[in-house]
Each structure stands twice: as structure tokens, then as C-alpha cells.
């Protein structure tokens, strides 16, 4: 039997990431923890955008749903972190399911705008209920409550391992999904929805599952962000956090499981270095988007895959 090259590659990446904590200096270890959480967010987004071909401009809402789902249950109901984390995922998944059910009645540009509008309404709702959410200012999750099974999530090493764990699970689940029957249907929908329908598949439940699944990823990332870094705020629901996963996926490679990780690392450090040069460092985001869409639509790994007979999932 031929070895499962793809699985081995992904396991190797996971192992390499784990080893990074022994190699990287503290500052970059902290950065990588953040990157892994954001890459988890983008890995889910990739299932929707990269594999199903649905471009959402509203995923910040699901990230925020995870963040507030975890944060609010801890703040107001005194839930332990172990319960609050899944609460965030559930909140985001339900919200994604509901919004997906509505938004999927539209396609293309209309889908982009509908998701954008829902996310904007969600952001404003967080501001509107600032009595509870503390709006833009946000609130702090008390350090003492941020532990799971005795592990202190605010400890740098624990935080890194937690972020790594969440990312690794997310990556393997994504790998399994895109290689499953469902994943192949999603790609078929992306390539030609009409033909998929004629082959006897009702695209709607598949598309809805993709929205909900990407919502669950966003929720997991948001909840993890709240638990690992301790603050919750409305700015995480703003449009910028909807653009970020799109950018990571585009750069790393749409429809490549490892793409979002590559994209997140590259963009993070591009911005990091741009900051040294100018206060207008966000120009990097703009230039990257324009150049990618003009010259490298497939992103880094997308271009690489073409040269590797396409075995890279």
C-alpha cells in the first residue's frame, strides 16, 4: 500500500510546529501562538471559500460569537473555561447556521454583501448592548479563571501548546473533510453547481454545512483568543477581522489545507516588518490583496500544488 503522503505531510507540519516552541525566542513563540489561533480561523474559512467557492465577508461575526460566547458565560454565569470554550463554538456554529440558511438563498456578489451586512449588524449589536458587552472597550477575563484541568492558559508555554492543539485538531479535521465524500461534493459545487445538482446532489445542505463548519472554526478561534489572551471586545467583530481570513487564504492558497497557515505566517510578519518602516503599515494588506488577485490567484501553495501533480490536498 502506498503511504498516505498527504497525511504524513500534515503530521510532519504539526510536529514541526510543536518543536518550534523549543527553538523560537519568547517573542516569536508568542507571535506563533497568535498566528496559530488566526490560522485556525482561516482554515475553517478556507473550507467555505477555497473548497466550496463561497466568499463570505462576514466571518468576523462568528469569530466574535465564539469570543463572546466564551467570555460572557465566564463573566456572567461563572462557567469554567472548560465549559465556556465549547459554549463559544456552539454559539458561533448556531449563528453561522442561521445566517447561512438566509444568506445561501443568494449567490455571488449578493452573498458577499449579505454576509457583510449581517456581520455589520452583529458588530453594531455588540455596541448597542454595551451595558453587558462593554462595547469597544471590552472586558477582561480574570486570569485566575483562565485554566483548564489545572493548566494555566495565561502561561506562555501552556498558551502555545493550547494554540497548537486547537490548530492541529482543526487542520486534521479539515484534511479529513476535504478528502471525504462531502469534500468532493463541495468542490463539485464550487466548479459547477448546476451540474452537481443534476448529478443528484442537493447543494443546499452541503453549502449550509460548509458555512456552519467554517463558523465552528471561527468560533473555536474566537473562544481560544478570549481564553488565551484574556480580553474580549467589539473591535474583533469589525470588518477587518472578516478580511483577515480571506487574505490569509488568498495568500497561502485557496483550496489547499495548509494554505491558511502559510498565509497567516507571511502576512503577520509582513505587517510586523512594515511597522518598523511606516505607520501606514496596513498598506501591506492592500498591496498584497491587489498583487495576489492580479498575479497569483492560487496563492503560494496553490502554485506549488500545480507542480506536484496535485496530490497536496
Amino acid at each position: 500500500m502506498k503511504p498516505d503522503r498527504a497525511l504524513l505531510l500534515h503530521l510532519a507540519v504539526i510536529a514541526a510546529l510543536f518543536a518550534m516552541q523549543y527553538v523560537l525566542p519568547a517573542y516569536h513563540q508568542g507571535n506563533l501562538a497568535r498566528i496559530l489561533v488566526l490560522a485556525t480561523f482561516a482554515t475553517g474559512y478556507n473550507i467555505l471559500f477555497g473548497y466550496t467557492g463561497l466568499l463570505s465577508l462576514g466571518h468576523a461575526l462568528f469569530f466574535a460569537a465564539g469570543m463572546y460566547g466564551a467570555g460572557m458565560t465566564m463573566r456572567f454565569l461563572d462557567w469554567p473555561a472548560l465549559a465556556a470554550f465549547p459554549a463559544g463554538i456552539v454559539a458561533a456554529t448556531l449563528l453561522a447556521g442561521m445566517i447561512g440558511a438566509l444568506a445561501l438563498r443568494t449567490t455571488g456578489v449578493a452573498f458577499m454583501i449579505v454576509t457583510l451586512m449581517f456581520a455589520q449588524a452583529g458588530y453594531l449589536t455588540i455596541l448597542y448592548f454595551n451595558e453587558f458587552t462593554r462595547g469597544d472597550e471590552g472586558f477582561v477575563i480574570v486570569q485566575a479563571t483562565r485554566n483548564i484541568l489545572g493548566f494555566d492558559l495565561s502561561n506562555d508555554d501552556v498558551r502555545f501548546v493550547a494554540a497548537w492543539l486547537i490548530f492541529s485538531v482543526g487542520l486534521l479535521v479539515a484534511l479529513a473533510v476535504v478528502r471525504s465524500r462531502m469534500g468532493r461534493v463541495l468542490v463539485a459545487i464550487r466548479e459547477n453547481e448546476e451540474r452537481t445538482r443534476m448529478l443528484g446532489f442537493d447543494p443546499f445542505p452541503y453549502k449550509l454545512s460548509a458555512v456552519a463548519l467554517s463558523g465552528a472554526y471561527a468560533g473555536a478561534a474566537g473562544a481560544a483568543y478570549a481564553l488565551l489572551f484574556g480580553s474580549v471586545g467589539a473591535s474583533f467583530a469589525s470588518i477587518q477581522y472578516s478580511i483577515e481570513p480571506l487574505l490569509f487564504v488568498l495568500l497561502g492558497g485557496t483550496g489547499v489545507v495548509l494554505g491558511p497557515l502559510v498565509g497567516a505566517i507571511v502576512i503577520f510578519y509582513l505587517i510586523e516588518y512594515a511597522r518598523e518602516v511606516t505607520t501606514a503599515y496596513l498598506i501591506v494588506v492592500g498591496v498584497a490583496l491587489v498583487l495576489l488577485i492580479l498575479f497569483a490567484r492560487k496563492g503560494v501553495l496553490g502554485s506549488l500544488r500545480r507542480r506536484t501533480d496535485g496530490w497536496l490536498p
Binding site: 462593554r134 469597544d136 472597550e137 471590552g138 472586558f139 477582561v140 477575563i141 486570569q143 495565561s154 502561561n155 506562555d156 489572551f229 484574556g230 480580553s231 471586545g233 473591535s235
Partner: peptide, 14 residues
């Protein structure tokens, strides 16, 4: 700005 302080203080504490 207070939202920046509130976002940053937990990290400073840790």
C-alpha cells in the same frame, strides 16, 4: 484610550 488599556493590561499582568 481605555479600550487599548483594557485590552493590554491582562498581557502586562501575565
Amino acid at each position: 484610550f481605555s479600550h487599548v488599556v483594557i485590552g493590554s493590561a491582562p498581557r502586562a499582568g501575565e
